[in-house]
């Protein structure tokens, strides 16, 4: 029994395009209902492959995929009916207008004509008239692709690198839209990106993938806790050599003229300070290193390399 309903669950998902190269290894993805799940990893880490497997664009080789509690392979149509997706570049017909592009899929999803107006309004493209899509800017195309993903009023939205090609204002707009969709309509969202800072402000859960392996999966709070485990503290005293001997348990190292050591919380920093002061050392600097999530992401993915 699970406390919350799991929308996406993969177990031991593995895939290889060529025999010698394992693109994905044992991916256990778990996306809970109502979550905004950031699926992060550098380019070529396996994000699009995973998403392609989830949507049936690749025939899966090993492991299982369960979406809405149903085995994807045997319930492909039922599952896809409840999903809106955008995989990599916007998939739009350049010779058709925004409305016509949506009209191509409207009967496929069995939604009313009114829904086209609604989704165009949501993405701010209701006034594009007879302009065909090939004349749209990349930002407009991306927004129309999102409108297309929203057309079936999906319960799950899968967006693969949706910020690609968007300017900073476009990224902020998209972020607001995703938050709004999640909050107002309760849509579960899986959003992939190779830039943590782009998704950090909108996600509730994160999965970090690197070279086809999941390095981390959990809530943002869990990631922050994970971050604390590896936090660094900078120290500078009146006698750093003596400080090294006093703090031997922490294995301090020189970082330029100051010392650097690993600590696990603010209480430990206070204890270190006390030790130094009680041993008559003047403390000039006692500063936790600024390790933001971006740095942690880089650390995680480079340490695994």
């Amino acid at each position: 029994m699970y406390m919350t309903k799991t929308i996406i669950r993969t177990e031991g998902l593995s895939y290889s395009y060529a025999k010698a190269v394992q693109t994905l290894s044992n991916i256990d993805l778990q996306v809970e209902q109502g979550a905004v799940y950031g699926f992060l990893g550098p380019n070529g880490s396996g994000k699009t492959t995973t998403i392609s497997l989830l949507l049936g664009l690749l025939n899966h080789q090993q492991g299982s995929i369960e979406i809405f509690g149903k085995d994807f392979k045997h319930h492909r149509i039922d599952v896809l009916r409840r999903i809106g997706s955008l995989v990599e570049a916007p998939s739009l017909y350049g010779h058709l207008t925004a409305k016509e592009n949506l009209e191509v899929y409207r009967p496929v999803y069995g939604v009313k004509p009114q829904r086209i107006k609604e989704v165009l309004k949501i993405v701010g493209l209701e006034d594009t008239g007879k302009k065909v899509c090939k004349k749209f800017s990349l930002g407009m195309k991306q927004r129309l692709a999102i409108a297309l993903a929203l057309l079936p009023s999906p319960e799950l939205l899968i967006l693969d690198e949706p910020t690609n090609g968007l300017d900073p204002a476009g990224i902020i707009e998209l972020r607001q839209l995703i938050k709004q969709l999640n909050k107002a309509s309760g849509i579960t969202i899986l959003i992939s990106s190779h830039i943590l800072s782009e998704v950090e402000k909108m996600v509730s859960h994160l999965g970090i993938i690197y070279r086809g392996k999941m390095l981390f999966q959990g809530t943002l709070q869990q990631l922050h806790a994970f971050q604390q485990q590896d936090a660094k503290l900078f120290i500078n005293t009146s006698n750093n050599e003596a400080a090294i001997q006093l703090l031997d348990n922490y294995q301090p190292q020189y970082d330029g003229e100051k010392l650097m050591l690993t600590f696990s919380g603010i209480e430990q920093a206070a204890a270190i300070n006390r030790t130094l002061v009680q041993n008559n050392l003047d403390v000039y600097l006692l500063q936790p290193a600024e390790t933001d999530l971006e740095q942690l992401f880089i650390n995680l993915t480079t340490t695994a390399a």
Partner: peptide, 14 residues
């Protein structure tokens, strides 16, 4: 040309 196969194949059609 428009790389639209992905959208077609992820829509609920047999």
């Amino acid at each position: 040309r428009d790389k639209t196969w992905k959208q077609v194949l992820t829509s609920p059609q047999k």
